[in-house]
Amino acid sequence: MGEKMERIAGAILGALIGDALATGCHWYYDIPTMRRVCGAWVSDYRRPAPGHYHDGLEAGECSQSGLLLVLLMESLLARSGYEEEDFTRRLDEEFFPQLDGSPRQGPGGYTSQSIREAWRKRVVEGRPWGQCAGYADTTEGVERVIPLVALLHGDLAKMAEAVLAHVALTQKDVTVLAMSLAYASVLALLLRGETFDSRISHRLMAAVQSGALPFHTVTGGDLAALPVDERPLRPGEMPSPDALLTPGNIAAAARDPAVVIEPAWKASLVYGMPCAIYHQLPAVYYLTARFPGDYEGALLHAVNGGGQNLSRAMLTGALMGAQVGLSGIPERFLRGLREGERYLDMARRLAMLA
């Protein structure tokens, strides 16, 4: 497998493994309770506890987040590219009929707020796609786009357009869109072989100045003020590039010996355990920077931090997998992932398409 295929397969399998690994111990906001129920240190797949979230899934099965990622990957492969109409048809015909609008129901054992809102607007109210998004400030959209980034990472402008359109199917808050695109852009750079360090934000800002990323800014790639008058926002442009600055700032903090979060799983306490994207992404960036080259270390600290550890592990898993490649993911995680062979075959085919 070539280096590009290694990175793409690593990102996709890395995300799905993170999802499945956290599913068995998801949404414990009281750490002592999590340790009592799930053990002192979660290091492999486990079945959810009876009566807890995702009860009924087997160890190594993906949650709904992982299943939606796979649904998008199926669409990309079937159409040899991204066609919104094909993906939304799959939601209408294959996915939404399995929902009833309640949270603890549906494929994967739980349906998130943004998906429930889209289901209500589409199925109950009969609205067309384009009018089904809600204001959930969570990470479902950015979790789904991982295979889309893998496909289009070679062209940041095309990737950005597709990512924003796709996330906007279910979430329309501009902060969520900006932070989702920022994460997608980081993932794209890592798939190109770049390093996750304090300079990554400078590289992202340079992409803004070149016109590749649609953020409005009055600073250059070195973050210095530009000697020009401020121009108006262009259609579809994010109003602020601050979401692009966060990864570099946090990477610098993770490498600074004077900044101590010990043990690393406590990043969930520092940045926040809840589901909102502005809690999730800082912890994801911190763990990615804290464990360079160590997929297992980053992932297990993401999982063992409790709270919304599923999103934290899924998003960390993609960034780490993009860096270490498939060969850098422990064999036991690949072997224990339910339907892992099918997912790996799909990831390889997507890499060839990319």
Rank of each mutant, 00 (worst) to 15 (best):
G126N: 09
R89H: 12
L99W: 04
P128A: 12
S114K: 09
Q98I: 05
S80Y: 06
L156N: 01
A157H: 14
G134F: 08
G126A: 00
A165W: 00
E161K: 13
G60S: 03
F96V: 05
C132L: 07
C132P: 07
K172A: 14
Y135H: 13
V70C: 11
A78T: 11
L152C: 12
F95I: 04
V163M: 08
D86G: 01
K121L: 15
G141M: 08
T138N: 14
E140N: 14
D86W: 04
A157Q: 15
T138D: 15
V176N: 04
G66C: 09
L69Q: 13
P128N: 09
Y53V: 14
T170Y: 12
A78N: 03
Q98P: 02
L148R: 00
R144W: 04
K121C: 12
K172S: 14
A150I: 09
T88A: 10
T111Y: 05
M159F: 06
D155G: 08
L152M: 14
A165L: 08
P147A: 12
E61V: 02
L151H: 09
V176S: 09
D137C: 13
G141Q: 11
R79K: 08
V149Q: 01
R79Y: 00
S114I: 02
I146D: 07
E61H: 10
T139M: 02
M179I: 07
L71E: 01
E85I: 10
M159D: 11
P103R: 06
V145E: 01
A136M: 00
Q98E: 13
F87M: 02
Q171D: 11
C62P: 06
D173G: 13
V174T: 14
P128I: 08
A160H: 09
E94W: 10
Y135P: 00
G130F: 13
A160R: 10
Q105K: 01
E58G: 11
L76P: 06
K158H: 11
D86S: 12
T139G: 02
L71A: 10
R79Q: 15
E61L: 01
S63A: 12
F95V: 03
I115H: 07
Y82V: 05
S65Y: 15
L57W: 01
E58A: 12
F96R: 03
Y135R: 14
G108W: 04
G60W: 00
I115T: 15
I115L: 14
G81M: 06
D137P: 02
L68G: 00
P107S: 03
L72K: 02
G130D: 10
L169H: 03
L177W: 06
S65I: 07
G60F: 07
A162P: 09
C132A: 14
Q131R: 15
D92P: 01
G108L: 12
S102Q: 07
T138M: 05
S63W: 04
I115S: 11
A150K: 05
H166N: 12
G60T: 07
V123P: 02
K158N: 11
D55Y: 13
K121V: 03
L72I: 02
E93K: 13
E117F: 11
